[in-house]
Simulated assay, not measured.
Amino acid sequence: MNKILSLTIISILLLSGCTTEPEDHSRQATQEKSTVPEKMPVQEYKGQGYQPHAEEDVIKAAKKHRKAFEKRGEQFFKDNFGLNVKATNVVAEDASVEVYVHCNDNGIVFNASVPLLKDAYKRTSSMRSTDTSSEMEMLVGTVLSGFEYRGQKEKYDNLTQFYKDNSKKYNYTGFNKEAINKTQGIGYQNEYYYIVYSSRSLKEYRKYFEPLIHKNEQEFKEGMIRARKEMGYTADANVYSTLFTDQFNNNHKEKVKNWIRFTDNLQKQPNFPENVDILSQLGDEFISTKSANYNEKKVIEF
């Protein structure tokens, strides 16, 4: 998950202008948070109690000015990537306010997040950035995973259907869609997997990829191929499954055999995405409600 970006990018987000927009939160929401357990079965988890470690004053700012932070987060992606996104969550994290967004614009689909300073809600000016940090490059890669999905949509949808069709046979489930939108910011992600695309500079994005947004499908695919060639980018995209099972601790030997069969079956399927490496991961059925980070789970990998 893309977390705190460098101070370079954050400082760019804090240009002149001022507005305040207090947001009251209901007593019911407060009570709900106090009763959320530390871990929940993934099928029941929809982002309840999600609150990474953060400073108390930042938590208060995120709650009080939620709507204003949402607008700034949405503006950030419009100003820098030319994409319309919808804010899905605002939470404090460490010393900044993290705005989670979901994009489904012209077939480009991804989840991402951007950190803002705790007083960024006061600003109204442009958020267009010239940041060249590695953190910004990671964020560009997050956005480009949505371009990768659009470029091979039919084949990725075939892969998704494979996971759906085999969920009962191999006894696994995936993330709840609402939990993805509220807690995940790692690019294109559905219930069963997420796509990791190469980190690129913002300058490269604006030159090679942003002009493709409104192209028809054929021109879009040709543009993606041309961009890879002109940038000398030959690496495969990576697909990481995020699967859960309530039998994680049962009969380890048989479970391993089962997942070897699953992986063999997956590799034999036709019409899956090209130039993609797929890693299958299986963890237990519980997810941490405060961090909701699959990468922190103990998993079996194939």
Rank of each mutant, 00 (worst) to 15 (best):
L5H: 06
L7E: 15
I9F: 12
I9L: 09
I12K: 02
G17I: 06
T19H: 06
P22W: 09
E23D: 11
E23V: 11
E23F: 11
D24W: 10
T30G: 15
T30E: 15
K33L: 12
T35I: 04
P41C: 04
Q43F: 13
K46M: 10
K46I: 09
G47D: 03
P52L: 10
A54L: 08
E55N: 06
D57K: 02
V58G: 10
I59C: 04
I59Q: 09
A61L: 12
A61C: 11
K64C: 15
K67R: 11
K67T: 06
F69Q: 08
K71R: 10
R72G: 03
E74L: 10
N80Y: 04
G82E: 02
V85P: 03
A92R: 00
E93Q: 14
Y100I: 02
C103S: 14
G107M: 13
F110T: 01
F110I: 00
A112H: 15
S113A: 04
V114K: 00
L117F: 03
K118N: 12
D119P: 04
M127E: 08
S134Q: 13
L139P: 08
L139S: 05
V140I: 06
T142W: 09
V143C: 01
S145W: 00
G146T: 01
Q152F: 02
K153A: 05
K155V: 02
Y156H: 03
N158D: 11
T160L: 08
N171W: 04
Y172S: 08
F175Y: 13
K177I: 07
E178W: 02
E178S: 04
A179Q: 15
A179S: 15
E191T: 11
Y192P: 10
Y197W: 00
S198W: 12
R200W: 06
L202S: 13
K203F: 11
E204F: 08
Y205I: 00
R206I: 07
F209Q: 14
E210F: 11
E210A: 13
P211I: 14
P211K: 15
K215R: 12
N216C: 09
E217D: 14
E217L: 14
Q218E: 15
F220M: 08
G223A: 12
I225V: 12
K229C: 09
K229S: 12
E230C: 03
E230Y: 00
S241V: 00
T242A: 07
T245C: 01
T245N: 03
F248S: 02
N249I: 03
N251Q: 10
E254A: 01
K255W: 04
V256T: 07
V256C: 02
N258F: 00
I260Y: 03
I260F: 09
F262V: 01
F262E: 06
Q267S: 09
F272R: 01
N275M: 15
I278W: 11
L282F: 10
G283W: 13
D284L: 05
F286S: 12
S288F: 05
K290G: 09
N295Q: 07
K297H: 03
K298A: 13
K298E: 13
V299H: 00
